[in-house]
């Protein structure tokens, strides 16, 4: 079963048929959006398309195919392998990761108990974000984050949907495998949302290199400490830092002599400085390299690379 075929199987029969017949190339497919009693929409090659009642894929559509509540329910059943209880924690966070590393975002009525999200019921909106591994996308920046077989503490700053996880994934692979000027290092990955390794039954679906250990579905802060104690990594990689406990764990990682590669939501270093929790990291010059992404020309476009003092090392 190829990747596209595997993806089709999480949809009910009608939608599956439409996606099968549509002229879709897997690597250009970015999102499939299902909203109850609304048209079926896909994001393909950075453009939005709707499906007509006859299954044709169009930019504008007068009589679009309308997604029913039953189809949403069915999709959810397939996505969770008929086992919603197994994805309780993920649902509380608003998404489920499926085989292949695709992230299914969910929205509906949130059940709150004592201020904490307990569950989501009446799930009526699904957003299937297709995971794409872009091998070699970090090749250009590796010389900026390494020096004489040493890795710099690096922070990737990027707005949503600009490819920060894709870049991080490829950086992990390169550091783990090594390249011409770098012989390779043991990398510990804390993959809280299963997006980096896209583990299915414990096996990473994405290539993370030969010296990589993955803690799947583990809270970042706890995972970083676990990895240091158990797997003695030379480099630790985490996605989307920002909570107070993450920052405490980062301090511990750095004091242990491990190198850290992390990503964060933002547009620039100044943006990061404006966030009270992250400001400390910038001011204390914890990170030696900052990579700023945008999606001006294409997703994953590197706009700037800075050092710890804010000197620009690279600019497009």
């Amino acid at each position: 079963m190829d990747k596209l075929e595997l993806l089709h199987h999480i949809f009910p029969k009608n939608i599956q048929n439409m996606l099968e017949k549509a002229p879709i190339t897997y690597y250009k497919l970015q999102e499939v959006r299902l909203r109850v009693n609304e048209p079926l929409i896909i994001i393909y090659d950075n453009k939005e398309y709707l499906f007509g009642k006859n299954g044709q894929m169009e930019r504008q559509c007068k009589f679009p195919y309308i997604v029913s509540a039953t189809e949403i329910k069915e999709t959810l059943e397939y996505v969770s392998s008929h086992s919603l209880y197994a994805y309780e924690d993920e649902i509380r966070q608003g998404f489920i990761t499926v085989q292949g590393g695709h992230r299914v975002g969910i929205a509906g009525k949130v059940v709150v108990e004592e201020g904490m999200i307990k569950n989501v019921k009446y799930i009526s909106f699904l957003n299937i974000r297709i995971s794409h591994q872009v091998l070699g996308c970090s090749d250009g920046i590796m010389p900026y984050i390494t020096k004489r077989n040493e890795i710099f503490h690096t922070l990737i700053i990027s707005p949503p949907r600009c490819g920060k996880t894709t870049l991080l994934r490829d950086m992990i692979r390169s550091i783990s495998n090594g390249f011409e000027e770098f012989q390779g290092a043991t990398v510990g990955v804390v993959d809280e949302r299963s997006e980096i390794g896209a583990c299915f039954l414990g096996e990473p679906q994405n290539d993370l290199g030969i010296r990589t250990d993955v803690l799947d579905c583990c809270p970042k802060a706890k995972g970083m400490l676990m990895l240091i104690r158990s797997m003695s990594p030379q480099v630790i990689a985490v996605d989307e830092i920002g909570h107070r406990e993450d920052l405490e764990a980062i301090e511990y990682v750095i004091n242990c002599g491990c190198k850290l590669i992390a990503t964060v939501h933002g547009n620039s270093i100044d943006d990061i400085k404006s966030k009270p929790l992250l400001r400390k990291l910038v001011q204390e010059r914890v990170f030696e390299r900052y990579i700023v992404l945008n999606n001006m020309d294409h997703v994953g476009n590197i706009s700037d690379i800075f050092d710890s003092q804010g000197n620009q090392l690279y600019h497009v």
Partner: peptide, 12 residues
Amino acid sequence: EIRTMATPLPIL
């Protein structure tokens, strides 16, 4: 299995 490992039904 459900209580301790939350294993999805097909595998379980």
